[in-house]
Nucleic acid binder design. Sequence first.
DNA 1: ATGCGTGCAAAATATTTGCACACGG
DNA 2: CCGTGTGCAAATATTTTGCACGCAT
Lengths: 148, 148
Amino acid sequence: MDREDLISREFLARGYKVTKQRRAILSVLDKSEHPLTAEDIYLRIRAENNVSSLATVYRNLKTLVDTGYVVKAGLFEDKVRYRLQNDPHTHNLICLGCKKVIPLSTCPLNCLGETLGEKEGFTVTGHKMELYGYCFECEHKGDQINRK
Amino acid sequence: MDREDLISREFLARGYKVTKQRRAILSVLDKSEHPLTAEDIYLRIRAENNVSSLATVYRNLKTLVDTGYVVKAGLFEDKVRYRLQNDPHTHNLICLGCKKVIPLSTCPLNCLGETLGEKEGFTVTGHKMELYGYCFECEHKGDQINRK
DNA sequence: ATGCGTGCAAAATATTTGCACACGG
DNA sequence: CCGTGTGCAAATATTTTGCACGCAT
């Protein structure tokens, strides 16, 4: 598989090993519609009859975040959650109702970002952005549990 | 003071009280160039000879986040940090070198955001964005501690 | 006066780490 | 084989909560 190959190659190049625990984390995140906590990930791995420990999940999440495959989400959440960085530059629409994440195909900032700091003498190297609101289904459900 | 008045009035209107502990948190955040952890805030309050407890800081941070005066930052940090929401709609340039936060006067998204989700049937109610990079000073310092 | 807010200490959560063994390259 | 990765359990760190008292309105 494309994706797996890429990951394997880059991982190896950096001196990291491709273990079943690391694959399991990526797989679980890939299958999830919304960002997961470390414990969520651990429980799902166990539920699939794969082995791992919470400590390993934490250690690997750190590694995966460092290497850029996973990003932290949780700007408006209580807990720290993680999701795949599917694309080197993707932003998401996040539903406050069902927590569903809908990736945007384009970056609303385009290349604008890099020129933004100019007048402050600031060199912008990146940005993170999440848009949130309500997806069609949640918008049209009368009573939404998660709406405050 | 303008700002204080505003806060007082809104707080009262919502049934919250304006206590010295809450003022202290806002004051400490206001004076800081970069986002602070709950413990940072607690220690700085103590350092200024004001009283508070860590539990109170946590409780009030929650209140202040709920009411929109403070926002969580920590997209690229290890720990959850808090900063003032100076304006109902502000974005910041965050220096990866010295952690300095430079507010942008305009929202790069403008009103674009609200139309972004349209084709997905998604109603965008808000967004959060942080731009990061290096401020002038850090860019021109040869060896930067915090650069990976 | 009333009830929200506070401090303290304890509890509950979340995350990290030491160590001996396992396994990928 | 070698060194990174893992599991377990213990150690830390972080956040929440019960309770009695205090203070803002």
